[in-house]
Amino acid sequence: MAWAVWFTGLPGCGKTTIARRTKEHLSRMGVEARILELDEIRRVVTPNPRYTDEERDIVYASLAYMAKLLCDAGVNVIIDATANRRRYRDLARKLVERFAEVYIKAPLELCIEREASRKAEFAPKEIYRKAASGARVPGVGVEYEEPMSPEMVVDTTTMDPDSAAEFVSRRILEIFAR
């Protein structure tokens, strides 16, 4: 039976890097998964995003439902998305029978520094700089609600991306072996 694992955290915390390395690590272990990267999906669901609460509700509900459909079809899913409200992640937990949450933790200052130099393919550029002009950025212009009891916590101030991916991969196999 397939599972879904949601990587959440502030923009720039390392979600995409760790999610991709986790996928690679799992693949070397013979476990395949599909990454659903919100920044890529948002371009289809809302091609001209305004990042309003209503728009976020639609985008995150669509993402959770995509994960459910893939899991129902037997595809393991790694969700790479900030999901600043717990209710977005809770919806996925409700829809997907085998679900876990990974909180990628980093202080805002480090996220700002990383985001300024990242080369992400789909993520919007310079979001924290835009926040100074009133852009609605989780952790700055919009609240980020940390997970209450995630199955995994990765502190990127003490763990590098490869170690984090190895840790998360092992935990995924432990959690879903039951």
Rank of each mutant, 00 (worst) to 15 (best):
Y103T: 09
P47W: 02
I79H: 02
E54A: 13
A33E: 06
V154E: 03
I58P: 02
A177C: 05
S62K: 08
D90L: 03
Y65A: 05
D160H: 12
E37K: 08
A67D: 06
R42E: 12
A132G: 15
E121V: 15
E24L: 06
V140Q: 07
R20V: 11
P49Y: 05
T46I: 03
V77S: 10
T158Q: 14
P49N: 11
A2E: 10
G30Y: 12
M148A: 13
I79Y: 04
L36D: 07
I78V: 13
I41H: 06
L26P: 08
V154C: 09
Y144L: 01
A165Q: 10
G14S: 12
M29W: 12
R85P: 01
V5R: 01
P138M: 05
D162F: 11
Y60Q: 04
A123M: 12
Y60I: 05
D53M: 08
R42I: 08
I35H: 08
G139Q: 09
D162L: 14
A33P: 04
A67K: 04
V59Y: 02
A100C: 11
V153H: 01
P138W: 01
E113H: 12
P147H: 04
A33H: 07
T8M: 09
F7P: 03
I112P: 02
D80L: 03
R114C: 08
I35F: 07
A64L: 11
Y144M: 02
R85M: 10
V142C: 04
E174T: 14
L10F: 05
E145M: 04
R118E: 13
R42G: 03
D155H: 12
E101Y: 00
A106I: 06
W3F: 15
V142K: 11
E113P: 00
I104W: 01
D72M: 14
Y60K: 03
P147M: 04
L69M: 15
R89V: 01
A120C: 10
L108K: 14
E145C: 03
A132E: 15
R118Y: 07
L36M: 11
R178T: 14
T46W: 04
I79C: 08
L26I: 13
L95Q: 09
Y65G: 00
L26H: 09
M29F: 03
A131M: 11
Y128P: 05
S117N: 13
R56T: 11
S149I: 00
E143D: 13
R20D: 11
E121L: 15
S27H: 10
Y51Q: 11
R89F: 01
E121T: 15
L173K: 14
C13I: 06
D90R: 01
